[in-house]
Amino acid sequence: MNVFSKIIFTIFVIQMNSYAFAESSSTDEISKYRELLADGNPAELWEMRGEELWKKKIAPKNVSLEQCDLGKGAGVVKGAYVELPRYFSDVNKVMDLEQRLVYCRKTLQGLSHEQAVKVPFGSVGNSSDIEALVAYITSESRGMKMNVSNKHPLEKDSYEIGKRFFFYRAGTHDFSCATCHSANKKRIRLQELPNLLNKLDAQKTYTTWPAYRVSQGEVRSMQHRLSDCLRQQRFPEPVYASDSMTALIMFLAKNADGGVYDAPALKR
């Protein structure tokens, strides 16, 4: 089988079994599937589409994203993600990958803000260009160590704001991020919860997003992961690619420093 048909077959196998996952989402079962699929993660399809989109010239300016500066210079994709979020002097602020992509699509390609943030999260029949681009860019950091800077004062600020957010208890249920993610070996139902204040857990978690979600049939980005956490936290919806989410991502990314990046991954 060639790579493409192998992936298609893999998706078929995964989709057939996604109902079983919904019923008993035990971590053991997932790891069995991970082994089974080893080199056939459907996320590869997103990565391929993302690379095409990165290089594709689009209206109105008829330019590609190839000159987008993700922090390591215009057009450098390799290793960019493991250093994000970071301070960008051209905007004098800290941005995560998705915020920076929006910025490049607006400034380089001439998209309006509405166009640049359209369909951040895909669904059946309405695929997301952003998720594909994110899959491609992150895949170019696979095998590299997380190395997020906190040298610039605004990077420090972003981390501290993210930290306050992490511990902010509010809403009807008194939940903060910390309620579920500050102790070892905890579970919600059968879903294991990473302790994001524990270095190893934080590394293992952060370095495996984005991921192809078997239960959703889509590659999901960090912004999607956080939005879904906040929904279950009984918080209102964060505006896509906003500064508060960048701050929270900064806090999580910095806590994962030194972890070897290994995504897009495969998850329940």
């Binding site: 957010f165 509010a170 209102p236 964060p238 508060s244 701050a247």
Partner: peptide, 22 residues
């Protein structure tokens, strides 16, 4: 600063409101 961001960057949806978390 975090509260200011929470106020300006979140949107109430259904029963989950910005006012409540603020």
């Amino acid at each position: 600063t975090m509260l200011t961001l929470l106020k300006s960057e979140f949107i109430s949806k259904g029963p989950a409101t910005v006012e409540r978390v603020l």
